[in-house]
């Protein structure tokens, strides 16, 4: 079942991180509005492959908006024109026949380009490794219900934990700041009793790591929250800032 949309795509092509990149024009025809954006990219790649050209590299895996792997900057917005969806959940019905679509990779110094539209986001992993956990070895745990947690806090914590680590917040921010991502993890654990013992050490270490990785500073423009596919709230950043101040006063180092 093919559709009736014809589109012009301007896609960022770059062989690897050291190579020069540029925007290249492509035409795709007979796109169905029921296709997902990535399926449209599949159609283009299929065209390129059978012509003997190199297909466009882009990251994706689950294609249901949860793994956080897809990462396209579409017409000037991370994950495209629709709010609260990932690239893989964006459908062509959000575009119009004849439209020109510009597709770029996430751009930030700590996210070097792997190829074309794929970037390396391992900086996020390193930030988590610096403190985004509760130090509890397997087998240490007590009975799960011995720790009642108010539904409100549990829900708030869950809302923060919904972050998929896609990096759209960084991509959207004019400063390439990672505050929303970091604050989501800090908040998730700060809101739970399990997170208390390491609360201030955690925020101290994670913020230090974030800075070290070269992310920009937060100037509270709110772009991250607006573009986050999971609706992670700015109030998490405020919570992190608060804890960070306390950490600064309270810690020994």
């Amino acid at each position: 079942m093919s559709g009736n949309m014809n589109l012009t795509l301007k896609v960022w092509r770059q062989k690897n991180n050291n190579a020069e990149g540029k925007l290249v024009n492509y035409q795709v025809k007979d796109i169905s509005p029921d296709m997902s954006f990535l399926e449209m990219m599949d159609v283009l790649n299929e065209q390129l492959i059978v012509k003997g050209d190199e297909p466009i590299a882009f990251d994706h895996d689950c294609r249901e908006g949860i793994c956080g792997m897809c990462s396209l900057y579409i017409n000037g917005r991370p994950h495209g024109p629709k709010d609260r969806v990932t690239t893989c959940q964006l459908h062509m019905r959000s575009f119009e026949d004849g439209q020109t679509i510009t597709i770029e990779p996430w751009r930030a110094a700590p996210f070097p380009i792997v190829k074309d539209l794929a970037v390396n986001r391992s900086a996020f992993d390193r930030i988590i490794a610096s403190g985004g956990y509760v130090s509890v070895n397997t087998g240490n745990a007590q009975d799960a219900n011995s720790l009642p947690i108010g539904k409100e806090d549990a829900d708030l914590s869950f809302a923060a934990a919904a972050c998929i680590g896609c990096g759209a917040c960084v991509a959207a921010c004019k400063n390439a700041s990672a505050m929303l991502f970091v604050s989501a993890k800090v908040s998730q654990l700060a809101l739970l009793p399990q997170g208390q013992p390491e609360r201030y050490l955690r925020v101290h270490n994670m913020v230090a790591k974030m800075d070290e990785e070269g992310f920009g500073n937060c100037t509270n423009t709110g772009a991250c929250e607006a573009e986050c596919p999971k609706g992670i709230s700015l109030s998490n950043i405020a919570r992190m800032n608060r804890d960070y101040f306390v950490a600064g006063f309270a810690s020994d180092n």
Binding site: K10, W12, L23, Y73, N75, G76, R77, P81, T102, E104, R107, A172, K174, T221, G222, A223, A226, E227
Partner: peptide, 10 residues
């Protein structure tokens, strides 16, 4: 970015 539409988010 070559194409940027920041007014959509801030």
């Amino acid at each position: 970015y070559a194409a940027s539409n920041p007014s959509a988010n801030s």
